[in-house]
Design a protein around this nucleic acid. Structure first.
Lengths: 113, 113
DNA sequence: ACTGTATTTTACCAATCAGTTAATTAACCC
DNA sequence: GGGTTAATTAACTGATTGGTAAAATACAGT
């Protein structure tokens, strides 16, 4: 079952280790060992996390001698950002004004039928 | 193992059914049956999805007679938005300028040692 | 009290997940 | 070629996930 792209991205981000890896890559390309160093975790575990991030298209990998450097590929985050934009108004409005807004939407919806 | 809040939120959003439920709630409070209607899924499955959303604090529930209406609680989305803000510059820069930026960061990092 | 409607709980299942250890591959250096 | 370092693959484990069917709970209307 091929999950949609948005679900795959959210899934990849739903792990603190993977988010820390992404954060680490904001300062530039890193090797797997570099990335693994801060974590109390074996290398295969890191390899797996990297695979999840790679499948989610959040990182890109290359080869340099015996190293497989990773770099950030932020485009899927843009999709998340766009998805979440649709909800921004709901937390930006104060609670009372949100209720007001929802009521208006519901009224409008009925008048649209 | 209590997952951190951000992971819980991402996890909750990593499912198209749950995102559709949230989208449905943007037009106002809904009963469980209302929410279940568009999906080819049994009620208990929806109940479970709602429980995930509730634990992630993305919805709130009340009681009205035999109904348990749900409404959107968007605050955790704000946290996601804030997290993702830290990455905005990486997709806003053009690819070439991003590479440039990362190289500068790496150079700077070395000169800082 | 009886019936129907709304919803949850329980018990189960198959698939996926996050980690491990041990073995393997790949490339470097001498 | 032999040894070292970097990283992955394979095989396993226990926990979690997303779904189901069937039973239980909660309330409303008559």
């Amino acid at each position: 079952m091929p999950a949609d792209q948005l679900s795959t991205t959210f899934q990849a981000l739903a792990d603190p280790t993977r988010r820390a890896i992404l954060a680490s890559l904001t300062t530039g390309e890193k090797t797997v060992s570099d990335l693994a160093e801060p974590f109390d975790m074996t290398m295969p575990a890191i390899t797996k996390h990297l695979k999840v991030l790679e499948k989610a298209n959040l990182i890109e990998r290359s080869r340099e001698a015996q190293y497989r450097p990773c770099r950030l590929h932020p485009e899927p985050l843009k999709d998340i950002d766009e998805w979440i934009s649709g909800y921004r108004k709901f937390w930006e409005a104060s609670f009372d004004r949100l209720e007001e807004y929802l009521k208006q939407l519901q009224t409008k919806e009925k008048s649209d039928e």
